[in-house]
Amino acid sequence: MCFELDSLPPVPRIAGAAVSHDDLELDAADGNRFAAFEATPDEPNGISVVVLPDVRGLYRFYEELALRFGERGYHALAIDYFGRTAGVGKRDDDFEYTEHVEKTTPEGIQTDIGAAVERLRPRTRAIFTVGFCFGGRNAWLAAASGHGLAGAVGFYGMPAERNGVPGPTQRATELEAPILALQAGADQHITADLNEAFERALAEAGVEHELVVYEGAPHSFFDRRYEEFAEASEDAWRRVLEFLERHSA
């Protein structure tokens, strides 16, 4: 689990920004129906973002993050992972997400991302993935999955092979879009060696990239509750927005 259920993104609201939002059900190419949350700005900037949550799937933190993107002119769509096993209904705080995470597949997740991309594509000039933890890894892998992304952003994602499944490090030569990796220096599982191997693989593959490690920051530092890491969160958010603007031109 990444964030507590009452956590919020450490991104200020923009008072007066006109954004509409909707709970959606999207249909993937394999017939899966899954939940999503869409934030649509009244004055869009032509850039869209698919928000990929952590292992718990879609909940308030990511809906709020989609709204923060929307307030800044980005068309944002946060998706859930568990339509195949848990349906599309809203879930309470006791949702046992672990058993559903174990039943996901890389192919299924990318199929769902593809459905989100296709919903966004008619109204945008550039589409990015932005993911966290489990979603960070899958955001990067989306750049190797034929979605036509302009870039992929991951917060504290696992870049290495996991449970025998190749990660972004192993698939670096397949990545077709620039990569932004925002990693936690005090992460107990994503070590400095793994980050260095990821950066080396990206460089050797000729993938445009930026990998930033926030020294001393824990996994899931991008959280308003972590006041001691507010500076790291502010820097990470700035880098995300700059990345989106730079690669959407």
Rank of each mutant, 00 (worst) to 15 (best):
E38R: 14
E161G: 03
F155I: 10
V117K: 06
T129N: 06
V88S: 09
V213C: 06
A116R: 05
D30L: 07
L5S: 14
T169N: 00
P44T: 07
V88T: 14
F61D: 04
R224S: 12
Y156D: 00
D112V: 00
T129P: 06
S220N: 12
R171F: 03
S220R: 04
E118N: 13
P10I: 00
A203Q: 08
E71C: 05
V130N: 08
R91A: 02
V212S: 02
V50E: 01
A192K: 15
R72Q: 06
R119G: 03
E174W: 05
Y74H: 13
L26R: 00
G146I: 11
Y214K: 07
F198H: 05
G157W: 01
A86V: 05
T98F: 14
E99N: 12
A28N: 02
E71D: 06
E174Y: 05
E71I: 06
T173F: 12
R224Y: 09
H21K: 15
G16W: 03
P178A: 05
A115S: 05
Q110C: 04
E38T: 09
G148F: 10
T173A: 15
F229S: 00
F37V: 10
A150I: 05
G114P: 08
G31Q: 07
D94S: 15
H247F: 08
A39R: 01
L52V: 14
Y226Q: 10
I79Q: 05
D92M: 02
G135W: 00
E242Y: 12
F34W: 01
A66G: 10
A160L: 11
E231K: 15
R33Y: 00
C2S: 14
D27T: 12
R119I: 09
L194M: 09
A35S: 11
A78Q: 13
E25A: 14
E4D: 15
T40I: 14
H189D: 13
G57K: 01
R239A: 05
G73P: 07
D223S: 04
A236I: 08
H75S: 11
G114L: 07
E242P: 10
L175I: 11
L180C: 03
D94H: 12
R84I: 04
C2L: 13
R225I: 06
E196Y: 06
A232M: 07
F155H: 09
I109G: 01
A76C: 10
F69L: 08
F222R: 05
E161T: 08
A172N: 01
G89R: 15
W237V: 11
L65I: 13
L77Y: 06
M158F: 12
E204W: 03
S248Y: 07
P10N: 04
E176Q: 12
H75Q: 14
A144G: 07
